[in-house]
Design a protein around this nucleic acid. Sequence first.
DNA 1: TGAAAAAGGTTTCTAATGTAACTAATATTG
DNA 2: CAATATTAGTTACATTAGAAACCTTTTTCA
Lengths: 150, 150
Amino acid sequence: MSEKIDSPLKLHNFLPYRLSVLSNRVSQAIADKYNQRFDLSLPEWRIMAVLGEFPDISAGEVAEKTAMDKVAVSRAVSKLLDKGNIERHFAEDDKRRSVLALSETGISIYNEIVPIAVGYEDLILDHLSDDERVLLRNLFDRLDQIQLQI
Amino acid sequence: MSEKIDSPLKLHNFLPYRLSVLSNRVSQAIADKYNQRFDLSLPEWRIMAVLGEFPDISAGEVAEKTAMDKVAVSRAVSKLLDKGNIERHFAEDDKRRSVLALSETGISIYNEIVPIAVGYEDLILDHLSDDERVLLRNLFDRLDQIQLQI
DNA sequence: TGAAAAAGGTTTCTAATGTAACTAATATTG
DNA sequence: CAATATTAGTTACATTAGAAACCTTTTTCA
């Protein structure tokens, strides 16, 4: 009973695969930059990015907003504290809850990285028409809603 | 000299970030499925997928087609050999070069997984109109061309 | 030719990541 | 109000992934 392939999957046309390859390529390109220039890992930069936008939130809120899990946040936070890029104190009404914010150093690094990150985004967006950009954003909004865990 | 943030980055509108979150969500959902049902990691499944489409190619060609690096391929290949999902022999004209293919077992697993994977893809594509699907494919084709390593 | 370089893979050593168990603080409820 | 459960975050252990060194075979070219 020699098995035969029913219908081959065309990998390079398979949406999840293409999504993964493109995403890795883009993330890697940006990560390379702030990795070498600012000694930051992607999770570390991601936390700085969210603290730049939302100062004084807790580790849990960071995890929520960055789609990272709490262990990854905890580890990256402690490295950022070591490097002096962020500051931490604890909530008065709940001594477990941390309150995180960029330090002076963190802010100046943030100010340097943001234009680089935006530059990479533009590198991509430049290849798209206005209509396509709107549509892409719209697509993401809808795809983010889809329930996948079956 | 108290630092101020020049212009905050809106993370949840930042294309590379959105790409990464969506990609991870989709990959994770599919991976969970064949992980529990067939004891396969994502790199392992990816190799099986490419061998289903292109039988009798070398590890190097697998790496190329899957956008994986050669170490990852080597490791996943050896696990797939252990599990009996693939077979390996070596090229006669070049004893270094491996020639990889799905085994009988591998093919029957492949035949089971493909519909599941396609099902997930459809779960996503169902949310898109025909026009949007065409545009999305077109977008990927163009974005894949962009040179990012500056 | 035959020495050096390159190609195809594998192994080793280290760093990153995920899961589960843990500590401390707060909330719940019998 | 004490016992129990829950929450926030950390630590420990196991697995995975990446970089560099490595072994073999093949190619190059002096």
